[in-house]
């Protein structure tokens, strides 16, 4: 019985400590706001998107501009349509999908000097 009570106590304490640790870490480093507001899945598995989204974009960019291939799957317009915030309609701004993760990872991109960061139409399904 005693042993059981101790086990419970330890468990409770360690959960509390873990939560505490997470809280202080979150306070120190502003984690990116990755808020998925629409769509049930991305155009590739999340782990792949995290690592390779820039490759998809740059590849698609050349296909579209030079060959006139306009497949929607890796089109930048399409990422924006799905990932723009419901509130601001944009992927930029403090909590913007692209901006906040890039700020966290200290990446700067110039794409939105030319490309609009604003959603044009509601996207709900990942295109093939």
């Amino acid at each position: 019985m005693l042993r059981f009570a101790v086990a419970v106590l330890v468990a409770v304490l360690s959960v509390a400590a873990l939560a505490d640790g997470q809280k202080t870490r979150a306070d120190r480093v502003a984690l990116p706001t990755i808020k998925i507001e629409q769509g049930d899945a991305c155009v590739a598995p999340t782990s792949e998107m995290r690592r390779d989204h820039m490759k998809f974009l740059l590849h698609q960019r050349d296909r579209t501009v030079h060959q006139g291939l306009r497949e929607p799957r890796h089109s930048l317009k399409n990422c924006v349509d799905c990932h723009a915030s419901r509130e601001s309609g944009s992927v930029l701004g403090k909590d913007g999908f692209c901006a906040s993760c890039h700020a966290y990872a200290s990446v700067s991109i110039d794409c939105f000097e030319c490309h609009t960061p604003l959603r044009q139409r509601a996207a709900t399904k990942a295109p093939k």
């Binding site: 110039d110 000097e113 030319c114 490309h115």
Partner: peptide, 28 residues
């Protein structure tokens, strides 16, 4: 000069050259 309010189909930005595209996005 820096550009804002671009059309989604026609990205435009400072420091590059541009001209009539024959509306390539429409032609496509």
């Amino acid at each position: 000069e820096a550009v804002s309010g671009q059309k989604a189909d026609v990205p435009r930005g400072k420091g590059t050259v541009e001209a009539c595209t024959l509306c390539v996005h429409r032609v496509d």
